[in-house]
Amino acid sequence: MLERTVQIVSNERSTDAYYRLVVRAPEIAPLIQPGQFAHVRIAPLKDALLRRPFSIFQVQGDTFSILYKTVGKGTEALSRMRPGDELSVIAPLGHGFTVPQPGAETPLLVAGGYGMAAMYLLAQRSPQKGIVFVGGRRRVDILCEAEFQSLGWQVRATTEDGSHGEKGLVTQPLLEEIRNPQSAIRHPKLFACGPTPMLKAVGQIAEEYKVPAELSMDEHMCCGVGVCLTCVIPIKSGDDWEYQRTCSEGPVFDAKDVAWEGVK
């Protein structure tokens, strides 16, 4: 974990409300593991003080990037920043995904919306190539299909309005794959990032079909480094559960550890 002032290399609209931001961060880039995040201070926000967390999307040389959706004042202000502008980032943060060992399980990635951003490094660094199940409301919510394909991954897209890929929820093709007796994938493991209802559904599938799963949880954050106890989720502990921090123990948790009855 380092705090650095970094320079924006590029900040371009990708589709609709999604942008890609590349920053030069030579000390941070080599430390990044799949599923970790950056905590970004958006200087033009004068009276909105808190940093915003974003998954690290890609790492290239001495740069890393994030893929973000404009949803509020922070991300709107970020989208107006230009190459050469500076940002303060604390990164890399959190415990990311477990990269599969060579010859071990085959990853099935499940992503909703900007959850796709957390998946790229895992897809790139996994020795086994699997399938990416990506879902969104509309066509514009399906991000970077081609980039996953060029890593040699199969991409199965679903949209709720049917404007791209299959119509429905991302968990439908996932279920078909897991139930398919002819599937070439022997030892699947699920890795998911997206809205909480999607993560819960993936967690249920993992439990029902006894497939291991890691989930990257999306909780509101404040400090991002473990001091404020804002970002907690209920994690099983003996017969009971306890709150653990998404920014520190997470954001990636083993699906079987999450005490869903306590998740809001």
């Binding site: 009276d47 909105a48 003080l49 808190l50 909780e219 509101h220 404040c222 404020c228 106890l229 804002t230 970002c231 907690v232 989720i233 306890e242 709150y243 306590g262 809001k264």
Partner: peptide, 22 residues
Amino acid sequence: RGNPTPRTAEVTSGMLNAIGLQ
């Protein structure tokens, strides 16, 4: 154990918290 989430919220030039002394 502390309070349920959300435990903090950003407000103009400040924030609210109800961590519940976890």
